[in-house]
């Protein structure tokens, strides 16, 4: 069944110095589904994500969004595209000179310059309430913990209710309770029918939320497709990689085989 793709990568190659980081990658990120990109460390997952999100320009190949090449978009179209996407960085990448509040509100005020200050505040507060973040929003990122930063980064990404959400290791650097909260938030987004693309090592996230899987190694796609399909792949590399990756993660409960066999989907 051909799913309508939100983003499609066609023969994307990206090099830095001699070795290619992405080598002829062709994948389909179906809209409304959650795609998880798996792979060992340093295989190019983050780069792939950024290419898909249009943050990195590949050396060759195309990234198609709504039938158009992402990098051929004009300035206005680009801004519209950005309005529809949210990106959660691995290290939060919050703007250190702005307060937490400003970090979240900036996207709102930029895309909707006519929005009044009251309305902005209301929206920010509703977002905050959504995730149960109770800390002060007037603090600077440097004053907050890593977990808090991650949450605010997430809020920043979804502030405009984008249809596309990219997440780079959303559960890294955070403690267990916060991770659970995060998984809940992602599940909420998924429930709202957003297209989510996640790069993760986490088996729980993978097993609980992934609709599609992309298995990457050394810049090459080993296998991509629906979760159930990829998980039952006969490709030896895929199997070993899956087991390796999923066993690297520090937080998982249950038997590995259980996970591989059935996986709890939503």
């Amino acid at each position: 069944m051909e799913q309508q793709s939100a983003i499609e990568l066609q023969q994307v190659t990206f090099k830095r110095s001699a070795a290619p980081i992405l080598d002829d990658v062709t994948i389909n990120l179906p809209s409304g589904k959650t795609t998880v990109i798996l792979g060992p460390s340093g295989c190019g997952k983050t780069t792939l994500l950024k290419v898909a999100a249009g943050l990195v320009i590949p050396d060759s190949g195309r990234v198609i969004y709504k039938g158009r090449n992402l990098h051929a978009l004009g300035e206005r179209e680009n801004i519209l595209f950005r309005r529809e996407t949210g990106f959660v960085f691995q290290d939060s990448a919050l703007w250190s000179n702005n307060s937490m509040y400003q970090n979240i509100s900036l996207a709102l005020t930029f895309h909707d310059p006519l929005m009044g200050e009251q309305e902005v505040r209301a929206r920010v507060e509703s977002l905050v309430k959504l995730v149960g973040y109770r800390e002060s929003l007037s603090r600077r990122p440097a004053e907050a913990s890593a977990g808090e930063r991650k949450i605010v980064s997430f809020l920043r990404a979804i502030a405009l209710h984008p249809s596309l959400v990219f997440m780079d290791e959303p559960l890294s650097e955070i403690d267990h309770p916060t991770a659970e909260r995060m998984i809940e938030m992602i599940r909420d987004q998924k429930r709202e029918g957003r297209t989510i693309v996640i790069v993760t090592h986490d088996p729980v996230l993978t097993s609980q939320l992934a609709d599609n899987l992309v298995v990457l190694d050394n810049g090459r796609v080993l296998e991509s497709g629906p979760f159930a399909q990829v998980v039952r792949s006969t490709n030896a590399e895929v199997i070993s990689l899956l087991s390796r990756v999923l066993s690297e993660a520090s937080t998982f409960d249950g038997n590995i085989l259980d996970l591989l066999d059935e996986g709890t989907h939503l």
């Binding site: 950024k50 999100a53 943050l55 300035e75 680009n78 801004i79 595209f81 950005r82 309005r83 996407t85 949210g86 990106f87 960085f89 290290d91 990448a93 919050l94 703007w95 250190s96 900036l106 996207a107 930029f110 895309h111 920043r156 990404a157």
Partner: peptide, 17 residues
């Protein structure tokens, strides 16, 4: 330092030039 901490990328991601 903003480049190093990916803050510039974050601006791009939000759509801010």
């Amino acid at each position: 330092s903003m480049v190093v901490s990916h803050e510039i990328e974050a601006y791009v991601a939000v759509g801010i030039n």
